[in-house]
C-alpha cells in the first residue's frame, strides 16, 4: 500500500547529559493526499515534537517519516510549516517575506512569474492590500495569514500547521478557520494541524488523531469525521454527527486520558 505520508514506528527520545526522556513511542500513521488531519492532545504530550519530526526540524530517534515512499530526514520546502507565532521576519515587508520563500523555491522562474505568484498567494489569504507593510504594523491575525501565504507559496506537498490559530482571539480564529477550509477546498493540499481546540479539530478535519499523555505518548485513537464539505459552522452547531464527533474527542481527552499534572 502506498500512502502519501507514512509515519512508520516513530519514536523520539531527548537526551540531556545522562538524563533521557522518551517523548514519543511507536507512532504509526498513514495520511492520504489531500487529507486534512488534526492532531489533538493535552499540552506536553509531544504534539509539537511530532510536527517537528515530520518537518525534519528534529531528528527521529527510531522509525522513519516517508513522503511518497521516500524517507525524509531534513527540513525542506516540500513540508512547509506555519508556525504558531507566525515567524515572519520583522525587517522584511509582507511581500518580501513571501518573496524570500518564492525566490528560494522557484529560482528557475522569471521575475514577473515570481511576482505574480507572490501576489496570487497574498490574494488567496486576502493580504494583497498590505503587501508593503511590515509585520509590526499588522494585526496578529494578519500576520498568521501572511505566514500561511508564505507556506502555501512554497507549493508544499504537505502543509504543517503548528497551532496556527492558537494565539488569536476567538473571532479572528473563526474567520481564519473559514479561510483555511476554503483554501483546502480550492487547492486540495494535504494538511496536518496541531491543535488543542476540540471544535477546531472537528470543524476542519477529515480525521482527528488523538494523542495519549506523555511521557512516551502515542496515538490513542483516530477518529473519522464523516461530515460533508463544504462545512458551515453555524449549521454544524446543531448537527448530530458533529456533536457526536465532538463528544468522542471530549470523552477521549477528559475521561480516558485526563491531563495529569507533572506527568
Amino acid at each position: 500500500m502506498a500512502s502519501y505520508l507514512k509515519l512508520d514506528h516513530i519514536g523520539k527520545t531527548f537526551t540531556r547529559g545522562a538524563q533521557k526522556s522518551e517523548v514519543l513511542r511507536d507512532i504509526n500513521l498513514s495520511i492520504d493526499k489531500g487529507e486534512y488531519v488534526s492532531i489533538i492532545g493535552h499540552s506536553g504530550c509531544g504534539k509539537s515534537t511530532l510536527l517537528n519530526l515530520i518537518a525534519g526540524l528534529t531528528e527521529v530517534s527510531s522509525g522513519g517519516v516517508l513522503l511518497e515512499n521516500k524517507e525524509v530526514s531534513a527540513p525542506g520546502p516540500d513540508r512547509a510549516v506555519v508556525f504558531q507565532n507566525h515567524s515572519l521576519l520583522p525587517w522584511l515587508t509582507v511581500y518580501d517575506n513571501v518573496k524570500l520563500a518564492v525566490n528560494k523555491v522557484f529560482a528557475n522562474r522569471s521575475g514577473a512569474e515570481r511576482h505574480d505568484w507572490i501576489m496570487e498567494n497574498l490574494s488567496l489569504v486576502q493580504m494583497a492590500h498590505a503587501k508593503d507593510k511590515r509585520p509590526g504594523e499588522i494585526s496578529g491575525g494578519m500576520k498568521q495569514r501572511v505566514g500561511i501565504a508564505r507556506a502555501l507559496a512554497m507549493e508544499p506537498k504537505i502543509l504543517l500547521l503548528d497551532e496556527p490559530f492558537g494565539a488569536l482571539d476567538a473571532l479572528t480564529r473563526a474567520h481564519l478557520q473559514d479561510q483555511m477550509m476554503e483554501i483546502h477546498a480550492r487547492l486540495g493540499n494535504t494538511m496536518i494541524m496541531i491543535t488543542h481546540d476540540v471544535d477546531e479539530a472537528v470543524l476542519l478535519s477529515d480525521r482527528i488523531v488523538m494523542m495519549t499523555n506523555g511521557p512516551a505518548a502515542t496515538i490513542g485513537e483516530v477518529l473519522e469525521v464523516p461530515l460533508e464539505r463544504p462545512r458551515k459552522r453555524v449549521d454544524l452547531a446543531s448537527d448530530r454527527m458533529y456533536l457526536k464527533c465532538r463528544e468522542a474527542v471530549l470523552k477521549f481527552l477528559y475521561e480516558r486520558h485526563r491531563f495529569v499534572e507533572a506527568a
Binding site: 518537518a55 525534519g56 526540524l57 531534513a74 527540513p75 525542506g76 520546502p77 513540508r79 512547509a80 510549516v81 508556525f83 515567524s87 521576519l89 524570500l100 520563500a101 528560494k104 523555491v105 512554497m154
Partner: peptide, 9 residues
C-alpha cells in the same frame, strides 16, 4: 528564524 531558514533550505 532558524527554523524558517531550515525549511527554506
Amino acid at each position: 528564524y532558524r527554523n524558517v531558514a531550515q525549511v527554506l533550505r
